[in-house]
Design a protein around this nucleic acid. Sequence first.
DNA 1: TACCGGTAGATAGCAATACCGAATACCGCG
DNA 2: CGCGGTATTCGGTATTGCTATCTACCGGTA
Lengths: 111, 111
Amino acid sequence: MSKQMTEMLKGFLEGMLLAEIARRPAHGYDITARLRELGFTDLVEGTVYAVLLRLEQRGLVDIEKVPSEKGPPRKVYSLNGRGRESLDEFWANWTFLTERLEQLHTEGEQA
Amino acid sequence: MSKQMTEMLKGFLEGMLLAEIARRPAHGYDITARLRELGFTDLVEGTVYAVLLRLEQRGLVDIEKVPSEKGPPRKVYSLNGRGRESLDEFWANWTFLTERLEQLHTEGEQA
DNA sequence: TACCGGTAGATAGCAATACCGAATACCGCG
DNA sequence: CGCGGTATTCGGTATTGCTATCTACCGGTA
């Protein structure tokens, strides 16, 4: 993953996890795999777990511990009300940013 | 500016400045004003100058010192070849990210 | 039994970067 | 000479993703 992409993920990864959890409750390993399928191949698990921990500490997600057939018990994350709010805010900010960038992009093309 | 937005800018601000400089050469004060017009009202000058310094140190921009009628000499930044490359890479990464996010967004809406 | 691979989660230390606040430099004007 | 507006710079802080490593649990296999 390019360093530039790494920096871009800052500020987006959290929202992406919220969005992914909103789609359907999941545990960390699952989410990591899904995001890698999406194309973020170099995303490391440690990062995802750290973000999930943050979401948990901020009370944006609910957690259910589910025994796993393989490995330690899974922590299945699901979005709660506050998480939904945060996700909505994320999309709003994302829309704002993309609109501005689109503007810069098209202006740049003209030049 | 929301904290979330602040974090989103990480990794984007630099590309935005490159794009803005590509549009037309400008100095820091100018760029700050322009971005504020674009909607980033709370963007602080100190931040913009810090990014410009980084661009300079990485050799992505050329600098011409122009005496100003008011205040110290202006540093007018213009994009050079390496800066153009970096900008292209930025747009490529941006496209990648927005496509994935768009996917997450629409999937979320369906749910 | 003992080991290994895959699943699942946690943690410590590091680097990058945007923010805030303050300082500095320069000019014209009163 | 000080004041206000323009223009740039700097030091310190917080957040965040990465790397690397560690623990834990299970099934299969020698």
